[in-house]
């Protein structure tokens, strides 16, 4: 189930879950972490939970706020590939 969200869709999902306005350009930056964007651990948990529910991301996927949205995008790509 689920489809890989595009960077723009992921940006929208993050904004909706965390209240932080994020652009797809920010998501592509390899150095910007979730923490840099002002997303805390609870916010990130909400994002991951939504991706697991609606986009078929495996339930064991874990990330912390020092990861980058770009890493999350990479995970999403792999998830669909496997």
């Amino acid at each position: 189930m689920g489809t890989t969200p595009s960077p723009a869709e992921l940006a929208g999902l993050i904004s909706r879950c965390t209240g932080v306005a994020v652009t797809d350009r920010q998501l592509a930056d390899p150095t910007t972490t979730f923490s840099d964007l002002g997303i805390d651990s609870l916010g990130l948990m909400g994002v991951l939970a939504e991706l697991k529910r609606s986009h078929g991301v495996h339930r064991d996927v874990e990330m912390n706020t020092e990861h980058t949205p770009r890493e999350l995008l990479a995970v999403l790509g792999q998830e669909v590939a496997r």
């Binding site: 909706r16 879950c17 965390t18 209240g19 932080v20 306005a21 002002g38 609870l42 916010g43």
Partner: peptide
């Protein structure tokens, strides 16, 4: 209200 706080 700060949008980050408003959602929570």
């Amino acid at each position: 209200v700060d949008p980050r706080i408003a959602v929570q």
